[in-house]
Nucleic acid binder design. Structure first.
Lengths: 212, 212
DNA sequence: TAGATTGTTAATCGATTAACAATC
DNA sequence: TAGATTGTTAATCGATTAACAATC
């Protein structure tokens, strides 16, 4: 894993999955190589930016020709964790939580949700896509036994902080947080937020401004 | 709406919902004013950044005292579109789409999803939280009749582009896109992406690096 | 060879952070 | 008044964009 010593900026990291997905389409199309201008055109970016991004991902191309699609796909899938699927636990079996449990697509992106947790007795024992809902009080025991490092929070904001504390106490090292609230964690526990209210705010504000 | 002439940077806009939510908690706590250092401490930001953000949102405070919570809440709710709920249509009644349809919480953030669409006959006619699933071919008719400007894409990436085209053709001006693919639209149609694969990529990569 | 595209170094732009005067 | 916090102007930092030589 010594090739992971390169740090990739967050803006770049967020664009890489789009490149990956475009390259897959190209490959299915029968293409074997691709150039920055091609990628840039499809994604409406500048070719300079694509070049820089691929460079910082460690991809190497050939002038005039571009990049070998298969090579870049391998590089990106390593970098994005697609080639090393990890188990995760999810807390909060509401609509969103169950949607994520039910969704099979995360596995090809390196994430395998193995079980859900909730405090609502009505939900306990239910099974979605082979994944059972357990009582939150079982979280630590199961996380330790399965040696799980990734957890997902899909609870309401009001309970997210205490759920986060349970996760930290259970040895979780990465939290994918869907609750619209800031979570405070030790340095060795990372948090990635999916804040739908923030995204919606951007949409509303921009729409308002474009109409004015 | 002339006070909307201020343009707010996207990083700032994404932090404002967190401030809003914190202020609500403070208010429920019985507080009437709040200072930047207080907000900063709770959200683990710098007080300078909070001050700048509030300033660009148009909030005015008093030295030594801080900001009047009720005033800031009003300012932010206007800016974030919370006080002016708009109708929206959703296309793609899979797990995620139904989770969003089912969720009642968006209304207090200014979004009211009134119906869903799909091409899968099995889903047509089903009703979630009073919201019916219609055939995609009815989209344009319904969007025009209800004069709807906002639409949500929760289809697989493979069909997102054609769905996007239908939306543009139907007079939609803002698209909340959950499909992990770039959508190309005219200047007067804005797109806000929620790309879970990108978010997951950041999580995986950071976890990998923190373990090394 | 000619010319398109890569790799790399420099310039620009915008967001964050710092500094400090104003003020309640 | 003293001191904490705001408002505002300046400095820094990092990401994007530009420029251009190297190369296939």
């Amino acid at each position: 894993m010594t090739d992971h010593l390169i740090t990739i900026s967050e803006p770049t990291l967020r664009r890489l999955p789009l490149y990956y997905q475009f390259l897959l389409r190209k490959k299915q199309n029968g293409d074997t190589s691709v150039s920055c201008p091609q990628i840039a055109q499809d994604l409406e970016l500048t070719s300079i930016q694509v070049r820089k991004d691929l460079q910082s991902a460690g991809a190497v191309g050939r002038p005039r020709v571009g990049y070998v699609i298969d090579e870049v796909l391998v590089t990106l899938s390593e970098l994005l964790g697609y080639s090393n699927t990890k188990d995760a636990l999810l807390v909060g079996a509401g609509n969103l939580g169950i949607a994520l449990l039910d969704y099979e697509g995360f596995e090809e992106h390196g994430l395998n949700i193995v079980a859900g947790f909730d405090v609502d007795e009505e939900k306990l024992g239910k099974v979605f896509q082979g994944k059972r809902i357990y009582d939150l009080s079982d979280f630590k025991r199961i996380a330790s036994r399965l040696n799980i490092k990734i957890a997902i929070i899909t609870t309401p904001a009001s309970s997210a902080k205490e759920v986060c504390d349970i996760m930290i106490d259970s040895g979780i090292k990465a939290i994918w947080n869907f609750a619209p609230i800031h979570l405070s964690t030790p340095d060795d526990v990372i948090v990635e937020n999916v804040n739908l209210t923030a995204s919606l705010a951007v949409l509303s504000n921009r729409l308002e401004r474009s109409i004015d």
